[in-house]
């Protein structure tokens, strides 16, 4: 068995994060609480799916086995996906969706900023574009979070509950393994541990404005990056991959 190149694994993880979260957000189409928010969630989803396409295309090139973006997105099973658990969590109520987006965007904004300086020219180019988009995603989620937390009794209760529920999944964003370690030294990958301080600053700042309490540090639920997923991912893929599974190679 040949060893998987770290650059392929690394790019695939980033692509899977973007695709799965993008797909989750697309599930809001037709169900958003108001029209402007429908457009916003749809637009964030488009950005993420666009990022995923660029990353999958590059991962396929790095792998060199002829898999294109569609093969990587539609023809892998749940245990082959390498996204973090946070992004596959169900949309829940609007507060859950916003908190999930906020926790993710608050790390991805500094992440893309750092990756834009990667010694890998393709990753740097994708990151430079994604950084600008992540700035919007973070601001959008932050503004909603402040409104929900510092809103009515009901919105505040739901926002705090969503934060408490998703907090255990945030820690996985800062973990690193052999894949990252192999790529950090040559300046290709970003060391996620270095993003933590900035993430905490922005999270604490917004939570204070939202009058929400930061959950105590506790259990970190992780495993997605090595293919150990919650049951939710399989259900998501069943819907997302249905067409290509039922009618392989279908185009329109």
């Amino acid at each position: 068995m040949t060893e998987t190149p770290p650059l392929f694994s690394y790019t695939l993880r980033l692509a899977d994060n973007a695709l799965i979260l993008g797909h989750r957000l697309s599930e809001w189409i037709g169900h958003a609480p108001l029209l402007e928010e429908e457009l916003a969630l749809g637009n964030v989803a488009l950005d993420l799916i666009g990022e995923a396409r660029a990353l999958y295309a590059y991962a396929g090139t790095v792998e060199g086995k002829g898999r294109d973006e569609d093969a990587l997105a539609y023809l892998r099973d749940a245990h082959d996906f390498r996204n973090i658990l946070l992004v596959e969590q169900p949309n829940g109520d609007f507060a859950v969706t916003i908190i999930r987006q906020f926790l993710y965007s608050a790390v991805m904004h500094p992440f893309w900023h750092a990756l834009a300086r990667s010694s890998d020219a393709t990753l740097a180019a994708i990151a430079a574009k994604a950084e600008k988009e992540a700035a919007y995603h973070l601001r959008h989620a932050s503004e909603w979070l402040i409104r929900l937390g510092d809103g009515t009794e009901e919105s505040r209760r739901r926002a705090q509950a969503a934060l408490d529920e998703l907090w255990a999944y945030a820690g996985e964003m800062f973990e690193s393994d052999d894949v990252e370690q192999a790529l950090i030294a040559p300046g290709i990958a970003v060391d996620p541990a270095l993003l933590r301080a900035e993430w905490e600053r922005s999270v604490d700042g917004v939570l204070a404005q939202a009058t929400l309490a930061r959950p105590a540090a506790g259990w970190i639920q992780s495993g997605g990056r090595s293919g150990r997923h919650s049951e939710h991912l399989g259900h998501l893929l069943a819907e997302m991959q249905f067409l290509q599974r039922a009618y392989p190679g279908a185009t329109w």
């Binding site: 402007e36 928010e37 457009l39 916003a40 488009l46 950005d47 919007y136 601001r139 503004e143």
Partner: peptide, 13 residues
């Protein structure tokens, strides 16, 4: 500003 995202991803309302 009414909305951060408008009729397309490149516009706000």
């Amino acid at each position: 500003r009414l909305a951060e995202f408008g009729s397309t991803a490149c516009k706000a309302l």
